[in-house]
Computed example of a mutant assay.
Amino acid sequence: MFDIGFFELLVIGVVGLLVIGPERLPETLRTLGLWWGRLKRGIQNTRTEFEQQIGADDIRRQLHNEDIMQRLNSSKDAIARAVGENVDDIQGSMKDVENSLKDVSDSLSDLDNASDTTPSKTGEADHKIGSDIPADDTPAADTPNNTTESSISAEPQEGAQRKPSDSGRH
């Protein structure tokens, strides 16, 4: 408020000592301190009352809330942009994968069609990979991959002999 340094205070003290005298100076300083305090309290009360009348606290709160809302909206927009960019990248990658899968599927179907129509060099028709049916369409009873229900069955077939150890368990 006032820019009073140490030298100015010293000058005021010396002048006060000479004018008022050493006997009345402490009482005068106490009175001035009380008046100063009352003046400060009065200014503070006036300021508080004025701020209440114009609603300065509400205005400050509203400005603070608006600032926070602006920050939140800018953060929300930044996040939405980032997510949108990522979604676009992901969709582009998905389209690339779909196209690749379609190309592979087309290649496989072309290859399958070509193998179905082309006879083999030995004169037999080609068969699909992993098929257990021989090319001449006869049942393969002696092939190791062809297992019948009777060979897997746990029940002994008619005419099969029982071992002596089997009869003791029943």
Results as ranks from 00 to 15, higher is better:
Gly84Trp: 02
Arg61Gly: 02
Thr117Ile: 15
Gly37Met: 09
Thr118Gln: 03
Leu63Trp: 03
Ser107Thr: 01
Asp103Gly: 04
Val104Trp: 03
Val83Tyr: 06
Asp88Leu: 09
Ala114Ile: 11
Gln91Lys: 11
Gly84Pro: 01
Thr46His: 05
Lys102Gln: 12
Asp112Tyr: 09
Asn113Tyr: 03
Phe50Gly: 03
Leu101Asn: 09
Gly55Ser: 02
Arg81Asn: 09
Ser75Arg: 10
His64Arg: 11
Arg60Gln: 05
Asp67His: 11
Ala80Met: 09
Arg38His: 10
Ile54Arg: 07
Leu111Cys: 10
Thr48Asp: 15
Ala114Lys: 15
Arg38Phe: 06
Ala56Ile: 05
Gly55Pro: 00
Asp57Ala: 11
Thr46Trp: 02
Glu66Phe: 02
Glu66Tyr: 03
Asn86Ile: 04
Leu72Ile: 02
Gly92Arg: 03
Val97Phe: 03
Arg61Cys: 01
Asp112Ala: 15
Arg47Tyr: 11
Ser105Lys: 09
Ile79Tyr: 07
Met69Pro: 00
Val87Tyr: 08
Arg38Val: 06
Ile43Phe: 05
Val104Cys: 07
Gln44Glu: 13
Gln91Ile: 07
Asp58Glu: 15
Gly92Trp: 01
Gln53Phe: 08
Arg71Met: 00
Ser93Asn: 08
Glu51Ile: 01
Ala114His: 15
Ser105His: 08
Lys76Pro: 02
Ser74Gln: 13
Asp88Glu: 12
Asp96Gly: 13
Lys102Pro: 00
Gly55Gln: 01
Ala80Lys: 12
Asn65Ser: 10
Asp110Asn: 14
Ser107Ala: 13
Lys95Phe: 06
Leu63Cys: 03
Glu66Thr: 04
Lys95Tyr: 05
Glu49Leu: 07
Ala56Asp: 02
Asp88Lys: 13
Asp112Ser: 15
Ser105Phe: 06
Ala78Ser: 11
Gln52Val: 00
Met94His: 03
Thr117Pro: 00
Ser109Ala: 11
Ile54Leu: 04
Glu66Arg: 06
Gly37Pro: 01
Leu39Ala: 11
Thr117Gln: 12
Arg61Gln: 07
Gln62Arg: 12
Arg41Pro: 01
Val83Ala: 05
Arg61Asp: 02
Glu85Thr: 13
Asn45Ile: 07
Thr48Met: 08
Pro119Ile: 09
Ile68Glu: 00
Ala114Trp: 13
Lys40Val: 14
Asp116Ala: 14
Ile59Asp: 10
Gln62Thr: 07
Ser74Met: 12
Ser115Glu: 12
Asp77Val: 13
Lys102Asp: 08
Asn65Gln: 15
Leu108Gly: 01
Thr117Asp: 03
Lys102Val: 06
Arg41Ser: 12
Asn113Lys: 14
Met69Gln: 15
Met69Ile: 12
Ser107Gly: 15
Ala82Asn: 04
Asn113Asp: 12
Ile90Tyr: 06
Arg60Ser: 08
Asp110Leu: 13
Ile59Ser: 05
Gln53Ile: 10
Val87Ala: 04
Thr117Glu: 11
Ser115Lys: 10
Asp116Lys: 15
Gln53Met: 09
Ser115Ala: 12
